[in-house]
Design a protein around this nucleic acid. Sequence first.
DNA 1: CCCCAACCGTTGCGCGAGCAATGATATTCC
DNA 2: GGAATATCATTGCTCGCGCAACGGTTGGGG
Lengths: 164, 164
Amino acid sequence: METLEREPLAVWLNLVQAQTVVAEALEDRLQASHGLSLPEHEVLVRLYSEPSRRLRMHVLAELLLLSRSGATRLVERLVERGLLTRGAATSDRRVIYAVLTDEGARIVEDSFPEFDRAVGEVFAAHLTSNELASLRRMLRKVLAGNGAWEDQRCNTVVPTRASA
Amino acid sequence: METLEREPLAVWLNLVQAQTVVAEALEDRLQASHGLSLPEHEVLVRLYSEPSRRLRMHVLAELLLLSRSGATRLVERLVERGLLTRGAATSDRRVIYAVLTDEGARIVEDSFPEFDRAVGEVFAAHLTSNELASLRRMLRKVLAGNGAWEDQRCNTVVPTRASA
DNA sequence: CCCCAACCGTTGCGCGAGCAATGATATTCC
DNA sequence: GGAATATCATTGCTCGCGCAACGGTTGGGG
């Protein structure tokens, strides 16, 4: 099995390509149905999955793999659309919370089910559930090996329209 | 095994995060050692792995997962640094080739071995060769399922400093 | 033969993102 | 208690990229 040893680079390129293709497909659907970019949608979902429906800017930036200035402008755009509000913290006056508005929450409830379905169709549908589990294990090992923060919140996301 | 059915989204997020983390690590090293961004380096490698050391702009754009305008400007920057040249085709006067200069080739020979090693350390080192092969199979299924072009050239890349 | 459609690469424009610097607040250490 | 330091979010600047429009070129159909 030592013959095919240019593997790692090829696999890395495949990973980049797959990520790009899937992200484009997801973003297209999201754009068409609700006029949201992928990061914009993620902000809404992240906030929705928070019981208090708010998150400090700094934490939001980390979750979105974004710089703090990037986060600032991202929420700024969503505030202008009325999907978010900025809220000050009582104890620490440096902190600003990004807060989901009712309309923002409504949009999540509207868009998330189809988004979740899209992830299934575009990405997960081509893999067995064993492969999916195996893939996750591998990715976590890579993340851990690079000292990446383990995002527990992945398990806590939206209860998929409990009201319906 | 039906209990954990929010898996797909979580795996997708892990994939994005892993891609981001690894890409940042690779780009940092490349930037430090040769002042190249990841796409810039890839252009050089793609051209180096071509026997004629040239590629049509359109093809280059596809390989790099870039728009044509993006490709135009990317090679423009590298031309200014003297690593590339633009060459006209004899038969079709619409076509322009991006051509690797000798200095560009020298840089590839210089940078690629460490880049390849970096991919090993940052990415592949955390997986067994079985896992790597399995990962590749999965990614290819996802790509095929989304009608992505199968990039055969992955196997043809640089002979890793045959001269040394 | 000539016109029209398709294709190639480049350009104008706007957008989203990162870096470094800023102001405003909190914390720490003497 | 007060000054130095750290932290938080924002802003100015610049860069890389995609989209749409363009000029130049080629091939195909009346």
